[in-house]
Amino acid sequence: MGHLDRAKCSAWKKEGGAGTEQDEVAADELLLPWSGSALGLADLGFVTGRHKPLMVGVIGPQNAGKTTLLAAWYLLISRGLTSSEARSFAGSYSFAGWEAVASALRWSPGLQPNFPPHTTSRGGRAPGLLHLDFRNTDGEARGYLFADAPGEWFQKWAVNREAIDGEGARWVAEHADAFLLIADRAALSGPNMGAARNSLQLLARRLSAESAKRPVALVWTKSDIAIAPEMETAVRETVLNLMPDAREFSVSINPGAESGSDSGQGLNDLLDWTLSIRRGCIFLPPTQASVSDPLFMFGAR
């Protein structure tokens, strides 16, 4: 119910009766082995205890809509507006972290909806990780970690792979199982469209060198904003020439003109693709055994 001190919760069943010393000690104990905030490196061991979550790296320039995309997904899931029937929400270890990025998008009486605050670019070895579990129709649970990293990290990493301020971006590139490359249509149609295009193309080249055939999606955010066809073609050709297997999606939190739903545009399609990703299998090379006894077939050479 949100009480950090369990003794203040009216629903808490006190083991030793009201006002006992045991209750006073218990009130200072940690309720759970996680805080509910965005996860850090120290939390990964706990989250991966049951199974290794699939890591999704959301990569793009600053203010491109990376955090807004994650927040919109969370709100769709929380309201049951996702389109996937093959899997259902099964829990999260970072509810407080999700609420922190999604609260601005919620409508409150007397307040206009806003966008999540800019993800801080303070130094760090890894981004904040937001966790979700989903369960398929067979009852199998699969975990996902979404990297919420500032765009400044990726811009510096794109220019110089070994940049000190790009350490967090390198961590995402090394550990992600899939990548969402964010293309901001607002920036690509604004007064600095040339610089935005060059920055995105530079980032695509860096990602192509690091992705190692892992799944990549080119995601056009703010798809309700029109850009010059030449600009769109230039970005698309750069990405697809570098990563021919990349998928392409257009998303917006604004509903389409032809749709009366409040689930935005393209958000569910991108989420379905992301949740369908499977981690690549590792195939061991065939062995050439010199003996017939299976015990010694895999001996060191």
Rank of each mutant, 00 (worst) to 15 (best):
A96T: 12
G97S: 10
W98E: 02
E99R: 14
A100W: 01
A100C: 01
V101L: 14
S103R: 04
S103Q: 13
A104G: 01
L105E: 03
R106L: 14
W107S: 13
W107G: 02
S108Q: 14
S108W: 00
P109Y: 00
G110S: 09
L111W: 10
Q112A: 15
Q112T: 05
Q112L: 05
P113L: 07
N114C: 00
F115C: 00
F115E: 06
P117F: 12
P117A: 13
T119N: 04
T120C: 01
T120Y: 00
S121W: 04
R122Y: 10
G123D: 14
G124F: 07
R125H: 07
R125L: 15
A126R: 02
A126T: 08
G128F: 06
G128A: 12
G128E: 08
G128W: 06
L129W: 10
L129A: 14
L130R: 05
D133V: 09
F134M: 15
R135H: 00
R135D: 01
R135L: 10
T137F: 05
A141S: 04
G143S: 13
Y144R: 03
Y144I: 02
L145A: 14
F146G: 05
D148E: 03
D148C: 11
A149P: 08
P150N: 05
P150K: 05
P150S: 14
E152Y: 03
E152R: 03
E152C: 00
E152Q: 09
W153I: 03
F154P: 11
F154C: 07
F154E: 07
F154V: 08
W157G: 10
A158M: 12
V159P: 01
V159G: 12
N160E: 15
R161T: 07
A163Q: 08
A163M: 05
I164C: 03
D165I: 02
D165T: 05
G166K: 09
G168L: 06
G168N: 10
A169Y: 06
W171A: 08
W171D: 02
W171M: 03
W171I: 01
V172Y: 03
E174D: 08
D177H: 13
I182A: 08
A183C: 02
A183N: 03
D184I: 01
D184Y: 02
R185Q: 09
R185K: 14
A186N: 07
A187L: 08
A187I: 04
A187N: 05
A187H: 07
L188H: 09
G190H: 09
G190S: 15
P191H: 13
G194P: 08
G194M: 14
A196M: 04
S199K: 13
L202Q: 13
A204K: 07
A204E: 13
R205L: 06
R206T: 07
R206W: 07
S208G: 15
E210I: 00
E210A: 11
A212W: 00
V216I: 14
A217K: 09
A217I: 12
L218F: 09
L218D: 03
W220I: 05
K222S: 00
K222I: 00
S223Y: 07
